[in-house]
Design a protein around this nucleic acid. Structure first.
Lengths: 292, 292
DNA sequence: CTTTTGTCTTTTATCGACAATAGACAGATC
DNA sequence: GATCTGTCTATTGTCGATAAAAGACAAAAG
């Protein structure tokens, strides 16, 4: 194949879910906006909906014929984009598998293992290289630098620099800035998770990312915001593969976030710095623990 | 063609230059190390040297037959790697040419214009995206964010954070660390250029990069060091296309560097910070001037 | 026994091709 | 007259193929 049709399949699935609620569908451009795809893809979706007997479609008349069933959806494995597949596969190798620092990375081997072309692997590695975990030797292989203690320390050093500055900038956002409202929402989710911590402690990972990204955005600096990608990916996979004491750790982090949020709202620089440092310190310790 | 043989051509040229001085050549592995290429390429070079009548080559006997002439070298246009060509071409478009922020970037068009395949352009854009000047819309075009005032301010903000910290770390390098010796060398070059500033002021650009990179390396943080790439590329092209008052600006920067170097050598934190801030401030002003 | 050379295999860099997806434009419909 | 649909074109994402370059290994030379 020349190109995966994951955009189509993913949008199709989301459209079927939409179908469960409405008896008909809006116009093609509107549906395109809702699903975040082009009209070409919308039309492909409509064609298929008709084929599987979920819809009658004639120009503007789009009438739902029956309730969607589980079998109508594409399997979730088929809706992941190629780069997501490569990323997961690669991160598993270097975080979970016994991948030692200094190891060579072979494009061809990786491609064959995942069952894709070399171009995609190359592009992934180039994109991934900005995370500082791998390095290219021109005309030769990539070298795995590894998820080492040094890596974690360098990462957190920059993170702390950036986040302290962003947190300070947050206090100066005007009252009407949407970030304050998002902060309220995020705080509410914190309380909700804490209230049912036993069952929901795994929801923390996503919330953590949402909160810190909000803080980083206050810096209004693209390099600071972009750097948060590096932090996010590391913590994301770290949470995924290291679940010892997760409940306890997450509960503690949630409490720290709440103090941090309260400090931000007070707009008191000293208090903000204190709460921020406190949380960053325990985040660093958590990360370091998982390495040694 | 599948691959440019620029590695061969460039190494060949460097080898011919080597030939001007010695009557014979060392072993294949040694020559490979000197030129920074593999033995395969070394043998290709030797083969061609023999073909053009510069060398007799039989096993270990490699005897130079005549002095190289200008015609023996490959033209310099042919020794630039593809990514260098793309980079220059692209930077000219966005810095020199009238490229407005928000403009779309078309891979195919770029490729045709430069006369290369789309894959190379794509890979270049992916690598280049970390400089924060362009942004990808998945399944669609790239957007030029442009070399704007905001860009320059965000860049220098991070630069100042990183460099102040690196400069402070420099003071703690042990006496025997090679950086101190490199600092001496760099200082000497400063004096040399200043002594003949009228003719050599354009040498500043390269020296500037060498000096600041040395400072950033003292941070021992890969993210800090990697970020210097962004600064370097921006200043590099900035120096290249904005030469108004260059002599005067560079002379001033050289003087600032000298104070900065003296401060580093004093290991006095307050003095280092002052000299560093002073220089960063005027570097920022220079950059901003060139934008508006 | 260390280094060099001859030979061979593996890997990277780059290209062109093509399906998926985006997007443009004119005529049709409200 | 604004929005929608039908149709067509342009661009992106991915693949396999191939020359350039790296690199492995054994035999030869010091």
């Amino acid at each position: 194949m020349a190109k995966q049709n994951t955009v189509f399949k993913d949008a199709f699935n989301r459209c079927v879910k939409l179908l469960e609620q409405t008896p008909s569908l809006p116009s093609e451009p509107e549906l395109g906006t809702t699903l975040g795809v082009s009209r070409t893809t919308v039309r492909a979706i409509l064609t298929r909906l008709e084929e599987v007997g979920l819809l009658t479609w004639e120009k503007r008349r789009k009438i739902v014929l029956r309730k969607p069933e589980a079998a109508d959806y594409f399997p979730t494995e088929e809706t992941d984009s190629l780069s997501e597949i490569i990323e997961r596969s690669f991160m598993r190798r270097i975080l979970a598998g016994g991948a030692e620092p200094g190891m060579q990375i072979n494009e061809l081997e990786l491609a064959r293992e995942i069952g894709i072309g070399t171009t995609s692997v190359r592009e992934f590695l180039i994109r991934f290289s900005r995370f500082g975990l791998i390095e290219k030797r021109p005309n030769s292989h990539w070298v795995l630098k590894g998820f080492t203690r040094d890596f974690a320390l360098e990462l957190t050093e920059v993170r702390e620099m950036f986040e302290l500055r962003s947190a300070a900038a947050f206090a100066h956002l005007p009252e009407e800035h949407p970030a304050w409202q998002e902060l309220d929402t995020i705080e509410a989710v914190h309380h909700a998770i804490l209230a049912d911590i036993e069952n929901r402690y795994l929801d923390f990972s996503e919330l953590d990312e949402r909160f810190h990204l909000l803080v980083h955005r206050a810096s209004k600096n693209r390099f600071v915001v972009d750097f948060y990608d590096v932090i996010a990916i590391v913590f994301h996979y770290h949470y995924q593969w290291n679940k010892t004491n997760a409940r306890q750790r997450n509960a503690r982090a949630l409490e720290e976030h709440l103090s941090y949020i309260a400090a931000l709202r007070s707009r008191d620089p000293a208090r903000i710095e204190k709460a921020c440092r406190q949380h960053l310190k325990s985040a660093r310790e958590t990360l370091l623990q998982s390495i040694n």
